[in-house]
Design a protein around this nucleic acid. Structure first.
Lengths: 344, 344
DNA sequence: CTGAAAGCGCTTACAG
DNA sequence: CTGAAAGCGCTTACAG
């Protein structure tokens, strides 16, 4: 493999100059730079990342942590982030926690991030006090996506989960529904995605604003995915006196609800209305009403906030403004799964 | 940050011994190892990956390349692979091509993999002759998933796409359908996932086996996703004399077909039967008949074939058996989207 | 089983 | 604008 010395020799300059020229530092004359680039090209030279990292102290790598890449929101976020990160000249180290607490702990043992990355993005990853200590000790820039994941000094990009849930619930109220159920994430779940707590709060507040008292028997906790939505809905139906509408904390749970309702012989929306949050790629196919949230934009914006201050491949490390979270807007999308409550 | 010298001093041994003890090499006495581990623990020592890589020549990192992480198959594969890779003590560098040829080219410029990883996994990534040369020059172990991605000397894990398509088509034939349309990927698409060519072949062979001649007007190419399925189906309906059944090359296209049919006022399966390939997480919700393929298992198996020969974190680099591809079984799953053709 | 020393291939002050 | 030299923090023969 050709190394920097070979290029230096061919170009007739020192290795220091090769290093500067190849990285585009300004302190190289145009003529020299040209010769170096030509030599590097001719020899098919590629810098050794390990050597460069060891000498330079920067890894050119960003860690991205998500709970489950197979869920709609996280897949879309990672796709947007990946694009931004690679265009900025960085590599992306992926950590998918797979919904397992054990993986979260392994990752957050300092050694697994220590000196491996220049920056960290945490997407909907619950953090305990000990984790915050570990992250602080790492002393790296970072950014988080989703409420419930907050690291002092790191900016955060998210939606207003309370408001989104309120909008969903009010949509159902506006259609005349009064027995509105809510299905959401289980706080006992390992690695619970905590945004659902805000969503429940929005649901309850909307009910109260309408003069209704939240009914615990209409509030079911389950996993934050399709199967969880199915199980929660089955449980709801088992309790008797079924709701006329269901607000699910995410579209995947709402889809599970659709399945359970169909299997129970109930029609959507004639017998039961259903709404979720996300605007999942398949929500249109299913005719699911939802509160759309901009997943791609959250990913892109968070990546930008993380990398811009780092100054790209060759720039100087910088500072990230922490401040208050950046809240992106959500939007009610009415499809076929919600309809007026039947008069009775 | 504490370094190996600090540990060596505290433990009263040389850095060489610390290095050996920490990596679990056998040539260290139990007593010494204990002292070293205690010292490392006490100092919260974490090895510097860059230094270790530069000195040792191994990166402890695997590159995983997928076309689009947001599609069902690739998300599931990455989740399975990520789990295996991290448990084996490696890091995962993610490359999502985002369906763009330009990204593929950037990745395959030698510099972007050169000395960055110990091994490569290519999932459904089309390769040209020049790419094969680049990969060969990298001289790294690798593995591929999906037909259409073949690298000399690398093992491949996949399903039998021809057989899967035949099974799907025969299912429709068995229900009495004769006008069976096919919607599949567009070969002109950048970064086309080439498995669809095999799937078309299976479709055509099944028709011929049944004594039917494939009708070009019933064979539409589009993008390999939901929107592509919708567009292809709209095109099909525009041609007049609609098919009584549609075999889509993947479930996401089949879901797009469901949308288009519904919007055209056609009922599934009463007017048109639909079947796909995958068994997508939402196929059950939609009642979509399909040919299930084991995505998770393909990922896990490929990861295992890639890493086992590398001997884990501390073992010796090894050889991968190339040989013939490992073909995993598929299975017909009949749901509500396919039904007998109406007599007429 | 252990250590001294060289070396991995770069980047970075420092000097000019 | 450019170069000589030190140094980044490990691992690996080699010797004992």
């Amino acid at each position: 493999m050709t190394k920097i010395d070979d290029v230096a020799r061919l170009a007739g300059v020192s290795t220091a100059t090769v290093s500067r020229a190849l990285r585009g530092l300004p302190t190289v004359s145009a003529a020299t730079r040209r010769r170096v680039l030509a030599a590097a090209e001719q020899l098919q030279y590629a810098v050794s990342p390990s050597a460069s990292r060891l000498a330079g102290g920067r890894t050119g790598t960003v860690a991205v942590v998500v709970p489950r890449i197979t869920r709609w929101f996280f897949g879309v976020v990672v796709e947007a982030v990946e694009d931004f990160i690679h265009h900025a000249g960085y590599d992306l180290l992926l950590h998918n926690l797979g919904g397992r607490e054990q993986n979260r702990q392994r990752l957050l043992r300092a050694a697994n991030l220590h000196k491996r990355v220049d920056a960290i993005m945490l997407v909907a990853t619950p953090l305990r006090a000990a984790d915050l200590t570990t992250l602080a000790a790492l002393d790296l820039p970072g950014v988080t996506i989703s409420s419930g994941t907050t690291v002092p000094g790191w900016p955060c990009v998210r939606i207003d989960d309370v408001a989104a849930a309120k909008t969903a619930t009010r949509h159902l109220l506006g259609l005349g529904h009064r027995r509105i159920a809510h299905i959401s994430g289980d706080p006992d779940d390992e690695l619970a995605f905590t945004a659902h707590l805000d969503r429940r709060r929005g649901y309850q507040e909307a009910l109260r604003d309408a003069g209704l008292r939240p009914d615990p028997s209409l509030d079911v906790e389950s996993q934050f995915d399709i199967a969880g939505g199915t199980r929660a809905t089955e449980e709801l139906l088992r309790r008797g006196d079924p709701p006329t509408a269901i607000f699910a904390a995410c579209d995947e749970m709402a889809m599970g609800a659709l399945t359970a309702l169909r299997d129970a012989g109930l029609r959507v929306p004639q017998d039961v209305s259903v709404i979720g949050i996300d605007d999942h790629a398949l929500s249109g196919v299913l005719g699911l009403s939802t509160i759309a949230q901009p997943a791609e934009e959250q990913g892109r914006l968070a990546a930008k906030m993380l990398l811009d201050p780092l100054g790209g491949q060759t720039g100087e490390p910088g500072m990230i403004a922490a401040g208050s979270p950046v809240i992106l807007p959500t939007r009610l999308v009415v499809r076929e799964s919600t309809a007026p409550a039947r008069a009775n």
